[in-house]
Amino acid sequence: MSETASGIEELEAFEGGAPAERLRSRPAEVWSAVVANRLAVVGLVVLGLLVVAAVIGPTIAPFGINEQNITNRFAGPSRDHWFGTDDLGRDVFSRVLVASRGSLQVGAVAVGIALGLGVPIGLVAGFYGGLADGALMRLMDIVFSFPAILLAIAIVAVRGPGLLNAMIAIGIVYMPIFARITRGSVISVRNEVYVRAARSLGASGPRIMRRHVLPNVVGPIIVQTSLSLAFAILSEAALSFLGLGVQPPQPSWGRMLADGRGFMKQAPWIGIFPGLAIVATVMAFNLVGDGLRDALDPRQKSIIESRGQQA
């Protein structure tokens, strides 16, 4: 009994002295590297504005999202209507502003679903290998073999159109990406000294994965999360464009694009401004993702610095 207690104490002491590689031991360093990247800062500013718009958009919108004024339909951008009005006389700026909440919500929840399903699968497959790895990765290959948007359309078609089903569909579509990235990272660290030491001290497989493996593979997962948020917003816009995502009367950037395509010659602003909102959001997530990649991958950072010195 004393030997067991001693082993537990040794294990806890070992885990208390976390390996230097752990991301959680250097958040300030990572943050400093991200804010040193000007493009990443631009992306953070844009995302901050989008989050503010999503939170307080309905309260600061100058007009109601479904407030119609048929006598003022197809009005161009002006002081009263910054983005003009649509075919029903609704203020496009108000609708674009409020639609940011739905787009960011879909992106966050869908990527959360993909993370919650894909990361554990990748952890188990990469850590144990063998039959578990083969079975789980073949399952991911089956899901990954379908074109992303077609699989999302199929899932929504089965479950029915709507915001919740769109989030579930997009989450399932991006699940294999997180599983693959996590598995590859786990394979690269599962035989490290600190993992072997934890195993020799009697730590169980789940404990090793949770306390030693996952913290050391979280970097690539964070980068992929930021990039997947951009793709999830694009997927939601595509589903809404096809009438399978956010349903009227709730505004959606994709749905507004679909509504505006029939008036491109008469009132191009109906589709242009929602499209610009999508572009700005996706670009912002990509810029932040690139900044995180450079901060979390020393090899990538050294390559960029060497190229800068050569230039």
Rank of each mutant, 00 (worst) to 15 (best):
Ala232Phe: 05
Gln309Glu: 10
Glu29Trp: 15
Phe74Cys: 10
Val279Arg: 05
Leu234Glu: 11
Ala75Pro: 04
Leu131Ile: 13
Ser188Cys: 09
Ala40Gln: 01
Gly122Cys: 04
Glu9Pro: 09
Met256Asp: 10
Ser2Phe: 15
Thr281Gly: 09
Arg38Ile: 09
Gly243Asn: 14
Leu257Tyr: 03
Lys265Val: 13
Pro27Leu: 12
Pro268Ala: 08
Val193Tyr: 12
Glu3Gln: 08
Ala110Met: 06
Pro206Gln: 06
Gly202Ala: 05
Ala110Pro: 01
Pro147Val: 11
Val186Ser: 02
Trp253Glu: 00
Leu136Cys: 05
Val51Tyr: 13
Val186Pro: 00
Glu3His: 06
Arg101Cys: 05
Pro298Leu: 04
Ser78His: 10
Val35Arg: 15
Gly7Asn: 15
Phe127Gly: 06
Ile272Gly: 01
Met1Gln: 11
Pro176His: 03
Ser302Tyr: 09
Ala135His: 09
Gly162Gln: 09
Glu305Leu: 15
Pro161Tyr: 13
Ala28Asn: 11
Val217Met: 03
Asn216Glu: 08
Arg293Ser: 04
Ile304Pro: 05
Tyr194Trp: 07
Gly129Ile: 06
Ile170Pro: 00
Gly260Pro: 01
Met264Gly: 01
Val124Asn: 05
Val109Gly: 03
Gln250Cys: 05
Met264Phe: 13
Arg196Asp: 15
Leu136Met: 10
Gly102Leu: 05
Trp269Cys: 00
Arg95Gly: 02
Gly291Thr: 06
Gly57Asp: 11
Asn66Met: 04
Trp31Thr: 13
Gly112Thr: 09
Ala75Val: 14
Asn191Ser: 15
Val109Trp: 01
Asp80His: 12
Thr59Tyr: 14
Arg90Ala: 00
Val42Gly: 00
Leu50Met: 12
Arg22Thr: 13
Ile278Trp: 03
Ile208His: 07
Phe178Ser: 01
Val51Gln: 12
Leu49Gln: 05
Gly102Asn: 07
Val111Pro: 00
Asp87Pro: 00
Ala267Asp: 03
Glu10Met: 10
Leu242His: 02
Gly107Arg: 00
Gly126Thr: 08
Ile304Ala: 11
Ala53Pro: 03
Ala13Asp: 13
Pro248Ala: 09
Leu242Ala: 02
Ile181Ser: 02
Ala61Glu: 09
Ala203Ser: 08
Gln309Asn: 04
Ile153Gly: 08
Asp259Lys: 09
Val92His: 11
Trp31Gly: 10
Ala40Asp: 01
Leu23Glu: 07
Ala169Met: 02
Asn66Pro: 02
Thr281Pro: 01
Ala198Lys: 11
Leu23Phe: 15
Ala99Met: 04
Ala258Asn: 12
Thr182Tyr: 07
Pro176Glu: 02
Gly260Ile: 01
Val35Asp: 01
Phe63Lys: 07
Ile121Asp: 06
Ile208Cys: 07
Ile65Gly: 04
Thr4Asn: 13
Gly184Asn: 15
Leu244Ala: 04
Gln68Met: 15
Asp290Leu: 11
Leu234Gln: 11
Ala198Ser: 15
Trp269Pro: 00
Pro251Glu: 11
Lys265Tyr: 13
Val213His: 04
Arg101His: 10
Gly118Lys: 10
Asp87His: 14
Phe127His: 13
Asp86Asn: 07
Ala179Ile: 08
Leu150Arg: 07
Asp259Pro: 09
Arg26Gly: 10
Pro27Gly: 12
Leu136Pro: 01
Ala157Gln: 08
Gly289Gln: 00
Val55Gln: 07
Ser78Pro: 03
Asn191Trp: 12
Arg73Phe: 12
Phe273Glu: 13
Gln250Ala: 14
Ile170His: 02
Leu257Gly: 02
